[in-house]
């Protein structure tokens, strides 16, 4: 059993000293421009509260007010833009969001998000998938046919 303690200590130590959290505990990674939330042209909302955005991206809210299914589009868990979006817009680590997804996926209560690689693929998918919501760095939107949604603080 001493071996186990040794292994834990060594591994813990090496992980701690390896490097600090990328981007810091509450930071947008350095050099990352701001991110905006985009939706498909048919999505019937122009604004969302922060909490609604969190509920949508954690796959808990699954329909728009007109009853149409919400389709969440994300980049892979380790993509810098995804990690920055999780931190700045949702206030959680990408790992925590993944745990929330897995809880729903492995009880059969939700499908996972649609995952795309890169901002061009994100724009193309959100523009062409009814009910889609995703995100893109500011200035990348161009004329892809998506709309931006304003995210407002929670009314108190």
């Amino acid at each position: 059993m001493r071996n186990w303690i040794l292994v834990l200590t060594l591994l813990g130590g090496s992980l701690l000293s390896a490097h600090a959290a990328p981007g810091g505990a509450d930071g947008e990674p350095a050099g990352e421009s701001a991110i905006e939330v985009i939706v498909a042209p048919d999505v019937p909302v122009d604004t969302l509260t922060v909490n609604q955005l969190r509920l949508i991206f954690s796959l808990r809210l699954r329909s728009w007010p007109n009853g149409a299914p919400i389709r969440v589009v994300t980049e892979p868990d380790d993509a810098p833009v995804h990690q920055a979006f999780c931190r700045t817009h949702l206030g959680v680590y990408a790992n925590s969001l993944r745990i929330a997804w897995n809880r729903l996926i492995y009880t059969g209560l939700a499908a996972g998000p649609t995952v795309v690689n890169g901002e061009a693929a994100m724009l193309e998918r959100v523009a062409n998938l009814p009910g889609a919501i995703g995100y893109v760095r500011q200035g990348e939107r161009g004329d892809a046919g998506v709309r931006t949604v304003t995210v407002t603080p929670e009314p108190r």
């Binding site: 609604q52 699954r62 329909s63 007109n66 009853g67």
Partner: peptide, 10 residues
């Protein structure tokens, strides 16, 4: 089967 239709409840 989901009953939905608002951003306030599912």
């Amino acid at each position: 089967h989901a009953f939905t239709g608002t951003l306030g409840a599912t």
